[in-house]
Design a protein around this nucleic acid. Structure first.
Lengths: 181, 181
DNA sequence: AACAAATATGCAACCTTTTGCATAAAGGCG
DNA sequence: CGCCTTTATGCAAAAGGTTGCATATTTGTT
C-alpha cells in the first residue's frame, strides 16, 4: 500500500487536490514513487472513505472547482505507523539492461542509440534535480528536520543519476569498439 | 510484456525448465528483472501456446521429471523485434526514499536503522556481483559480443551499488547529526 | 461562434504482480 | 515407517498499475 502512503506523505504540510498532487508528484515525490492521475484520484477517494483523509470542495473563480484533501489525525497516525514498519526493497526493473543481455552484431548500434537516449533523459532529470537543490536545499545544515530527509532523497537521485551518466559513457565506449570490430 | 522477453532472453543459449529458470533469475537476469516462480511457470505456458517456445518433458532419475522449454525460430524473431522496439524507463519505486520525506525527531533513529539494513543488503549483493565478475567477466576485452552486453549490465549493478553505499554513509552521517541535536 | 488549452475529475477494461495455498516425486535421516 | 528437504509444477484470489476514453469548466484565441 505504498501509493496510499506516498500520497499521504505529499499531504503532510499542505492540503491538496488530486490535480495539484498529480502536478507535485512530477517534480518531487514522483521521482521515487510514480503515480498517474487516475491512480491518485482513486486512491484519494479510498483514503477519504477509510477516514485517513478529509475532503472539502473549494469553489474557484477562473477555474473549475476542486476537491481538496487533508490528513486526518488517523491518517497521520497511519502514516507514522507505516514509516516504522518494514521497508521493502523494490527490485529494479529495467528493460534496457535485459536488452543488453541480447547484445549481438545486428543490434549493437540500436542499443548504443538507446543508451544515448537514456543518457540525455538523465541529463535533463539531473538538471531538474540540481535546480531544485540549489533553490531549496542549498543551506543543508539549517534545513528543518523533515526537509533534511527530502534533501537526502534528492541527493540519492543526484548521485545515482550522475553515476548512471558515467556508466552510459563506459557502455557507449565498449559498444563503439564492438561496432567497429 | 517484458517478463516474456526476459524469460526468452534467459533461454537464448540453453533450454531450461521453469525451476531452472527460476534459479538462474536469482543470480543473473533477476538482478534487473525480478520474477517469482509462479509468474515464470505461467508465462512459460503462455509462450509455448503462442509458439515462441517449444516444450518437452524430460525424465530424470533421482528427481521428479521436468518440462524443458526452448526458443523456437518465431521466439527468436519476436525477441529480436522486442530488442529493436522502444525501451521504457521504469521509474524507480523505493519506499525508503518516500519514508525519508517523513523524517522527524521521532523516526530518525528508525530510518537510520533501515538505511543500515539496506547498506548491508547491498554489501552482500555487491559481493555476489564481484564474485560473478571475477569468475566470468575478468577478461572483458576477449568476451564474445553477447557476453559483453551482460558484462555491461553487471557493471551497471556494481556502479549503482557502490554509489548507493556511499550515499548510505552520507545519509547515516547526516541522520546522526539530527539525532544528537 | 468555433476552437484550443489548462484545469479538474473520473470510469472501465485490461494487464501485471503478489500472496497464499496445493500437489507430488525422490532421497536422506532417525 | 514417518518426517524433512530439494526438486518440480501449478491454481486462484487479490492487489496494484496501465491504457484509453469521457466529461466539464473557464479563459484566451481566431
Amino acid at each position: 500500500m505504498a501509493l496510499a502512503h506516498a500520497i499521504m506523505t505529499a499531504l503532510i504540510e499542505d492540503d491538496l487536490s488530486g490535480y495539484e498532487l498529480s502536478r507535485d508528484f512530477e517534480t518531487s515525490l514522483g521521482f521515487f514513487w510514480n503515480a498517474s492521475h487516475q491512480q491518485i484520484y482513486q486512491e484519494l477517494r479510498k483514503l477519504a472513505e477509510k477516514g485517513w483523509l478529509n475532503k472539502r470542495e473549494v469553489n474557484q473563480s477562473g477555474k473549475p472547482n476542486k476537491i481538496v484533501y487533508g490528513l486526518t489525525m488517523a491518517g497521520r497516525d497511519a502514516l507514522q505507523a507505516w514509516v516504522f514498519g518494514t521497508t521493502r526493497t523494490q527490485a529494479a526493473k529495467d528493460e534496457l539492461l535485459v536488452k543488453l543481455y541480447n547484445l549481438d552484431a545486428t543490434n549493437v548500434s540500436h542499443l548504443a542509440t538507446e543508451i544515448s537516449r537514456r543518457r540525455e533523459d538523465m541529463m535533463k532529470l539531473l538538471y531538474l534535480y540540481e535546480t531544485i537543490r540549489r533553490r531549496h536545499y542549498a543551506d543543508t545544515a539549517n534545513l528543518p528536520v523533515r526537509r533534511k530527509g527530502v534533501y537526502l532523497a534528492l541527493a540519492y537521485g543526484i548521485s545515482q543519476g550522475e553515476h548512471f551518466l558515467a556508466w552510459c559513457d563506459q557502455a557507449l565506449e565498449l559498444l563503439a569498439g564492438v561496432e567497429s570490430a
